[in-house]
Amino acid sequence: MKRLLTVVLLTVCAAAPEDLTGKMFSFPQETKTDHVKLITPREEFKAITVCLRSFTDLSRNHGLFSLATPAFANAFLIFKKSASDQIEMNIRNKGISFFGQEYKLNTWQSVCTSWDGANGLVQVWIDGKPSARRYCSDGTITGHALIMLGQEQDSHGGGFDPQQTFVGMTTDVHMWDFVLSPCEIQRFVDDLNFSPGNVINWRALEYQIVGKIILENKQGACSCLIKKKVSNMFGQSCQA
């Protein structure tokens, strides 16, 4: 009974869709348990686009976004390899690597990826810079979708490896069931008036926190930019 109570206390659910504008999830430690589950009733995907912003100092392998189904542990996985310029995408358990990506440490970065099941083409954008479009896997992703931040699923809802844990901050997570246009992706990167995800929407998010993950106000240069004009009027410096 005592053990069961501990698990309940460490699990926090959003009772209803919540607007997380201006918020971020902080993943402060390397573990084999802590994660955020993003909840969607959708069970069929013929195309996917995912966009998010992340901040980390990790130079080892780590997952940024993990979608698993009973048939595919890596149905849609965004995975940062230890090589500074390499992003790996896994679609329907098939992997492909993208090189030449300027993935920087200790700074907020916008990461977007898309997959078209009709032709199997995958593309990655880091801060709006596109990769080549490459073939990975065509078809459809079906079944109960488990979407997680902070851990990379090697099985449906589990198989976590602490050496692949994400440590850092994540915000503005959106997912669409179609391939987003390059112009719309640039609007996300610039934080303009883009169309929010129709599968996962940061402005109306259903989620579950497991472990020591903190939902807090977003940190970064955004608040500084907003105040910059006012600060300059009084000869003051602007600090984030």
Rank of each mutant, 00 (worst) to 15 (best):
V179N: 02
T40R: 01
S54D: 09
T69D: 00
K212C: 13
D154L: 12
Q123E: 15
D154W: 12
R92P: 11
Q123C: 07
E152N: 08
T56Y: 09
F79L: 12
S110E: 12
L20S: 06
V36L: 13
F27V: 14
C112D: 04
Q86F: 11
I39R: 08
L9A: 04
D34E: 02
D57K: 10
K32W: 14
M175A: 15
I213M: 10
L5E: 08
E216F: 11
E43H: 02
T171Y: 04
K129E: 06
I214W: 11
I200A: 03
A83C: 06
V50H: 10
E102H: 03
Q236V: 07
V199W: 08
Q123I: 07
T171C: 14
R60E: 10
G143K: 10
H62F: 06
G22C: 07
T11A: 00
I200H: 02
L67Q: 05
R203N: 14
S137K: 05
R133L: 13
V12T: 05
K37D: 13
I48H: 00
G157N: 10
L215K: 12
G143H: 10
P41S: 03
G157T: 11
P196R: 15
L215F: 11
S195D: 14
I141W: 15
D127I: 10
L205G: 03
L121C: 04
S181Y: 10
T56E: 07
L180I: 08
G220H: 02
F99N: 08
P41V: 00
L9C: 02
C51F: 00
G95H: 08
S66E: 00
C112S: 05
A47S: 05
V189R: 06
L52C: 10
G158T: 14
